[in-house]
Nucleic acid binder design. Structure first.
Length: 640
RNA sequence: GCCCACGUAGCUCAGUCGGUAGAGCAUUUGCAUGGUAAGCAAAAGGUCACCAGUUCGAUUCUGGUCGUGGGCUCCA
């Protein structure tokens, strides 16, 4: 007997359909176009394939590629498609995991020999064949026992390991042709849906991210519903390359690294140093305004210091070998905190003296494994915008509020508004301090973030062993997140250095210590800053704010005088007196992304004017010199 | 550290199926004093990352080292 069921759509309307209709059939009733575009669905908020059959009344939502759910399923099916192709070409390959990721997918395999770029081409061709075969993706549900038997029988040991960790119950497999994979789904209906894809790279990846487990071969790819969208994405990747801070750093002559000087060690050129100076000056001023004091500490410290701090115990892998000075071991500092604690210990403190806020642009050196170095974003020598706050327990919540507000103010001053905030809590096993302290501090951090009204993610167990923390990460041009700001409790150092203050009760008490960096490190921050602005810095940050270009040689004296006048007024100006055509000099200044170009020829010399051309504009405006300086001053005063 | 790729002039890149290399831009010089994205010409510039091996001969082939890029792990 055929009965009807009621399907409720997202807009609230309902549709009577025959019982046991597939989602795909229902989609057809709503519209042919939607039926064609739909990839997966949610029935009563549970994601399903389009082949899912509706047995009773249900809410239905269809997802096309426009939705996150649609994209995810699309890329996930593409990863199955690739795995299928790999299994055809490399029957001995063992499957590990293959999820969808932003803009694409990957799949990990264990193979006899490593993949080569030539293999990628062959795999792509095989994928195209499977797409042409238009295979149906069929969901099968079996018991866990049966799934384990099946994957054991075909030698898929990684799948068996995954199954071992799954709770007992029904397991779903997806089969397309002769290929089947353990998978929760949902998936696209047929392989022919995957019209455009490209395999992008080969990488090694440890099984389950554990470097003690075997290294597998990972293939990354991207997939799109149409070739146009694929091409647009590939084009986008090329555009992203143009704002890469390593490329811009060279083009704008900001900094360099050399094999001769050593990897991960940055040489700051005059323009980069100027940018740094601007950032650091602003930073210092703001710190004084915000109730901090500045301190300085040396680059090296005696081994006894690092024994007391515990760094030789828990951080030695990141520290460089000691140097011998008069028979004593000294270490180059990987952190500034021990020095700041020694400053604290140089005298006694009353509860009335707290809180103390000591900041330092402290240059530290850390051993980073060679494979992780990356331009300015991951280096071996860097300057942290460090500070340590020492406060009484009762002052702690306010101090966190203050430091968080200060942090957001700094980031926003540099134009960042799109960052991610993480609250990292106590690690599972290894931690110091008692649980009461941890929960008090974690709660304080949480409340502070919530009071500030910012979205955050919980990084459960992601705290340092010495305390919970708030981390703020900023994305680079490729969308990769880099940790910049961090606000960390430290329950370890105050104990180790036995720092105290005398309370109103006349007794010694242990202060709370908060370690924080707002920009993170100057190196990393400049790296993300360059990418954020694509090298087009706002006026207040531009190493060169104005390029004055002469049209004819006889304008040189006048131009030099104007440049000097601007510089006396605190503006950063350069004069290009080269005997080149004005077109050549303009092009040069544009390529260096100078915010303002001032052209000076005979007319301007005679009338005391300058022909001003703003970055990004193709027209110019002639104005009196005074008007020009006033305009520059006004703009440089703002942080926009 | 591990996996894949790469390393030719300051930069961007050709090239050599083994006979020690080329372009454009940048640089220097000469001419042109040119009005809003490259004026014309010439010169100079390279241990083809480094070290071994194979070879009559290696920038090219093989191995190792160093460095860079994309990942993994880890972190500001």
């Amino acid at each position: 007997m055929s009965s009807e069921v009621k399907v409720t759509l997202p807009d609230g309307s309902s549709l009577p359909v025959e019982s046991n209709s597939s989602v795909y059939e229902v989609a057809g009733k709503i519209g042919k176009k939607l039926q064609k575009a739909a990839l997966v669905a949610a029935v009563d908020d549970r994601l399903t394939d389009l082949s899912f059959r509706l047995a009773g009344d249900a809410g239905l939502k269809l997802f096309t590629f426009a939705s996150a759910e649609g994209k995810d399923a699309f890329r996930h099916s593409a990863s199955h498609l690739m795995a299928h192709a790999v299994k055809r070409l490399f029957p001995g390959a063992k499957l590990a995991v293959g999820p969808a990721i932003d803009n694409g997918f990957y799949y990990d395999f264990e193979v006899e020999r490593n993949f080569t770029p030539e293999d990628l081409r062959r795999i792509e061709e095989e994928m195209a064949k499977i797409v042409a075969e238009d295979l149906e993706l069929v969901r099968e549900e079996v018991t866990r026992r049966k799934a384990i038997d099946y994957f054991s029988s075909i030698g898929e040991s990684y799948k068996v390991e995954l199954l071992d960790d799954l709770p007992d119950g029904t397991i779903s497999l997806y089969r397309q042709g002769e290929f089947a994979d353990l998978c929760r789904g949902p998936h696209l209906p047929r392989t022919s849906y995957i019209k455009a894809f490209k395999l992008l790279s080969i990488a090694g990846a440890y099984w389950r991210g554990d470097e003690k487990r075997p290294m597998l071969q990972r293939i990354y790819g991207t997939a799109w519903p149409t070739k146009d969208e694929l091409d647009a994405y590939l084009k986008h990747l090329e555009e992203v390359e143009k704002r890469d801070h390593r490329k811009l750093g060279r083009e704008l002559d900001l900094y360099s690294v050399h094999e001769e000087t050593g990897p991960g060690l940055i040489l700051w050129h005059p323009k980069g140093a100027r940018l740094r100076h601007i950032i650091e000056s602003f930073w210092r001023e703001e710190h004084y305004k915000n109730g901090y004091d500045l301190v300085y500490s040396p680059h090296i410290g005696r081994s006894t210091l690092w024994e007391t701090s515990g760094h030789l115990g828990f951080y030695s892998e990141n520290m460089y070998s000691p140097m011998d000075i008069d028979g004593q071991d000294y270490y180059v500092k990987p952190m500034n905190c021990p020095f700041h604690l020694m400053i604290y210990k140089s005298r006694g403190w009353s509860y009335r003296d707290l809180p103390l806020r000591w900041a330092e642009l402290g240059t530290v050196y850390r051993y980073e494994r060679s494979g992780v170095l990356h331009g300015l974003l991951r280096v071996r020598g860097f300057t942290q915008d460090d500070a340590h706050l020492m406060c009484r327990p009762d002052q702690m919540p306010e101090e966190i509020d203050r430091v968080l507000a200060f942090c957001l103010y700094m980031l926003r001053s540099f134009g960042f508004s799109d960052f991610k905030v993480y609250l990292a809590t106590r690690p599972g096993e290894k931690f110091v301090g008692d649980e009461a302290m941890w929960s008090e501090a974690t709660q304080a951090l949480k409340e502070s973030v919530e009071r500030a009204g910012i979205d955050y993610e919980l990084d459960d167990g992601g705290g340092a062993f010495y305390g919970p923390k708030i981390d703020i990460k900023i994305k680079d041009a490729l969308g990769r997140e880099w940790q910049c700001s961090t606000i960390q409790f430290d329950f370890n150092m105050p104990e180790r250095f036995d720092v105290t203050y005398v309370g109103s009760d006349g007794q010694k008490h242990r202060p709370y210590m908060i370690h924080r960096a707002l920009l993170g490190s100057i190196e990393r921050f400049v790296g993300v800053l360059v990418e954020h602005y694509a090298g087009k810095f706002p006026l207040w940050l531009s190493p060169v704010q104005v390029a004055l270009l002469t049209v004819v040689s006889e304008a040189a004296d006048h131009t030099v005088r104007l440049r000097d006048e601007l510089m006396r007024g605190g503006l950063r100006a350069e004069a290009d007196l080269r005997e080149e055509t004005i077109g050549y000099k303009i092009r040069d200044a544009i390529e260096k992304k100078v915010p303002y170009i001032g052209v000076i020829g005979r007319k301007e010399v005679e009338s005391g004017t300058v022909s001003v051309r703003r970055r990004g504009e193709t027209s110019s405006r002639t104005m009196p010199v005074d008007e020009f300086t006033a305009l520059l001053r006004a703009e440089a005063a703002g942080k926009a």
